[in-house]
C-alpha cells in the first residue's frame, strides 16, 4: 500500500521526510527496475519450488541452494522495493534493518536447529 506523500500534518512549515516508507513515486519514466525485480523474484521462487518438488538434489545440497536463493531474493526485495539505497533518513534505517536481519536469520537458523530432530527419529 503506497500512501501518497502529503504535507506533514504535525509541524507547520517543517516537512518530515520518511523516504523509507513514503517514497517519491512520481518519477515519469517507465518502472523497468521494479518490473525486472518482480520477474526476478518470480523466477527465483520458481527455481526453489522446482528443486524441492522434483527432489532434484540431495538434501544437504538442496538446503544450501535454497538458502542461497533466499538471500538473493531478500537482496532484490530490499534493493528494488524497499528503497534501501535511497540516502535520506538513515537514522532509523540501519537499526531497523539490522533488527530485521537479526530476527530473520535467527528464525531461519533456529528453525533448522529445532527441526533437525526429524533426521534423528524418522
Amino acid at each position: 500500500m503506497q500512501e501518497k506523500k502529503h504535507e506533514d500534518p504535525t509541524l507547520p512549515g517543517e516537512s518530515v521526510e520518511i523516504p523509507l516508507l513514503a517514497p517519491h513515486l512520481s518519477t515519469p519514466h517507465f518502472p523497468a527496475r521494479q518490473i525486472a525485480g518482480y520477474v526476478a523474484s518470480l523466477i527465483l521462487t520458481g527455481i526453489a519450488f522446482f528443486l524441492v518438488a522434483r527432489h532434484a538434489l540431495p538434501l544437504s545440497w538442496l538446503l544450501a541452494v535454497v538458502l542461497i536463493l533466499a538471500f538473493l531474493q531478500a537482496a532484490i526485495q530490499l534493493g528494488v522495493f524497499m528503497h534501501l539505497r535511497e540516502g535520506r533518513g538513515t537514522t532509523w534505517h540501519l537499526p531497523i534493518i539490522g533488527l530485521g536481519l537479526f530476527v530473520g536469520l535467527g528464525i531461519v537458523g533456529f528453525s533448522i536447529w529445532i527441526m533437525l530432530f526429524k533426521s534423528g527419529v524418522s
Binding site: G106, I107, F110, I114, F117, G120, V121
Partner: peptide, 18 residues
C-alpha cells in the same frame, strides 16, 4: 520474546539441547 517459542512444543522431542 523472540527466543522462547519452542516452549509451546517441548514434547515434540527436539532434544535436550534445544
Amino acid at each position: 520474546s523472540y527466543g522462547v517459542w519452542v516452549h509451546h512444543f517441548f514434547e515434540m522431542g527436539a532434544g535436550p539441547g534445544v
